[in-house]
Each structure stands twice: as structure tokens, then as C-alpha cells.
Design a protein around this nucleic acid. Structure first.
Length: 234
DNA sequence: AAGACGACCAACCGCCGAAAT
DNA sequence: TATTTCGGCGGTTGGTCGTCT
């Protein structure tokens, strides 16, 4: 398997570079007719001279309905920070909790806003980081418990159901039946964003980023943290 | 005014795993 | 069961734009 054959990029004549409005329209028409998927047949059916991989990327990151454009809110930023701390560079997983945001967008955002602050922590510092993170999580919960007001206008902003990377939102709901409401989640997010901002300053200054092992796929070592924050969803 | 620089974003590349054959 | 095909993901690159000097 050479990684290229699936997308037939070896073939000559595929267009590259920025998409034109005409190409966008062709792709949108194709998806309207055939639905998402079958990207490799887009060229044949629509006349687009783009390979399937490029078509999929354009659709997912730019043309797909419901995408949000513009700056990320503080709530979204807080969610990104927290979920990245838990799962590392699982951008697509993180993106699932930010409706309307793409993995590419989150990845770019992280790279420009946070990566520059330092390198990830290494395993040796993982415990230290987790301890500090958990402390803030506890405070978040307590503060959230004491919070009685919420902003109705922001409830739609982030509809979040926390789950481990492997499980889908529906599975989570079905398995546990304990999914926080959007309002509750929004409160969490507001508090988290503020707290995370403070925490982030400390983290950066304390050079905790001296090498973090973001290998969080194994048995989800941060599950307890997640449960503290969002309830036993998994 | 213009060059340097950084932030931001779109797109490409290579790899991997799942599905299909 | 082995091979091929496809979809998806994360890393990286390159272009554009705004700000600073």
C-alpha cells in the first residue's frame, strides 16, 4: 500500500491550490445530489479536476453547512485547552465538542495561540500537570455548583457531550443517560475558560511545557478528571 | 513608504485503519 | 486470508494580510 493509490494522485491532471467559486459550486452540487462520501468518484460525476482527498477536505473544512467562521469564543478556547490536555493532538475528537468548528481550524488555532508558548510536557511532568489540572477542575465544579445564572443567548454556542475518544455521543447517551444539559455545560465552559486562562499563565511561566507526553490513548488515564468535570459519561 | 515579521488560514502530504474485493 | 481501495487524521507548508519598525 503506498498511501497514494486510494486517491489516485499519481494520475496526471489533478488541479491543486486554492479552490475557485466554480469548483466550490460543482462540489456542492455533487454533494447535494450524492451526499457526502464517495469522494473518489467526484471527479467522474461532477467534472471537477480534483482528487477525492482534496474534495473531501474542501467540503469538510469549508463548504459543509453549519460551519462557524470567525474567532473562537473564550468558551470554545477553554474547551480546546481542556480537551487537548486530556487527549493531546486528537483534533478531530476535540472538534466534535465544538459544533461548527473543524479539526483543521482547531489545529491551526492551537498552533498559533498555544504551541508558541512552549513544548509539550513529557511523561515525567505528566503527574505534576495532572495534579494541577485536577485542582482546577475541582474548583471549577465547586464554582459551577454555586453558579445559578446562565446566559440563554449563549446556550446554542457550544453543545457539548463529553465522551472518550472511542465512543460516540449517542453511545454515551445510551450507556449512561447522564448527559449534562447545554446550559450546565455552558456554565462549566464559562468558568473553565476563566480558570483555564489563569492556569495557562501559570503553566507557561512555570515551564511545565518542558516536554509533555500526550499519549493519552492508553486506558484514558484522565478519565477521572473528565468525570469530575462532566459527570460519569463513560 | 517599504521591508520585516508574525498571525492566521487554506490546502497538501504521508500515514494508518477499516471496508471491500 | 491477502490484497486493494477508500476515508480519515495529524503534521506541515505556503500564501495573504495586518502591524511594527
Amino acid at each position: 500500500m503506498d498511501g497514494m493509490m486510494g486517491w489516485r494522485v499519481a494520475e496526471e491532471g489533478w488541479r491543486k491550490g486554492p479552490w475557485t467559486p466554480a469548483e466550490d459550486k460543482l462540489l456542492m452540487d455533487y454533494v447535494a445530489l450524492h451526499g457526502e462520501g464517495r469522494w473518489s468518484s467526484v471527479a467522474g460525476c461532477s467534472g471537477l479536476r480534483r482528487n477525492g482527498k482534496s474534495c473531501r477536505l474542501r467540503w469538510v473544512n469549508y463548504l459543509r453547512p453549519g460551519l462557524k467562521k470567525g474567532q473562537l469564543s473564550p468558551q470554545e478556547e477553554g474547551i480546546i485547552i481542556e480537551l487537548h490536555a486530556l487527549w493531546g493532538n486528537k483534533w478531530s475528537t476535540i472538534a466534535r465538542y465544538l459544533p461548527g468548528r473543524t479539526d483543521n481550524e482547531i489545529k491551526n488555532y492551537w498552533r498559533t495561540h498555544f504551541k508558541k508558548k512552549g513544548k509539550p510536557l513529557q511523561n515525567a511532568d505528566n503527574k505534576k500537570y495532572e495534579a494541577q489540572f485536577s485542582y482546577h477542575q475541582d474548583r471549577n465544579i465547586q464554582e459551577t455548583m454555586n453558579t445559578t445564572t446562565s446566559s440563554e443567548s449563549e446556550v446554542h454556542d457550544v453543545g457539548m457531550i463529553i465522551e472518550p475518544p472511542q465512543a460516540g455521543p449517542h453511545e454515551t447517551t445510551a450507556l449512561t443517560g447522564q448527559v449534562a444539559t447545554c446550559g450546565q455545560q455552558q456554565q462549566n465552559s464559562c468558568v473553565m475558560a476563566q480558570d483555564v486562562a489563569k492556569w495557562w499563565d501559570n503553566v507557561s511561566e512555570d515551564s511545565l511545557w518542558s516536554g509533555f507526553g500526550w499519549n493519552l490513548d492508553h486506558d484514558h488515564p484522565n478519565q477521572a478528571v473528565m468525570e469530575q468535570s462532566f459527570g460519569p459519561c463513560f
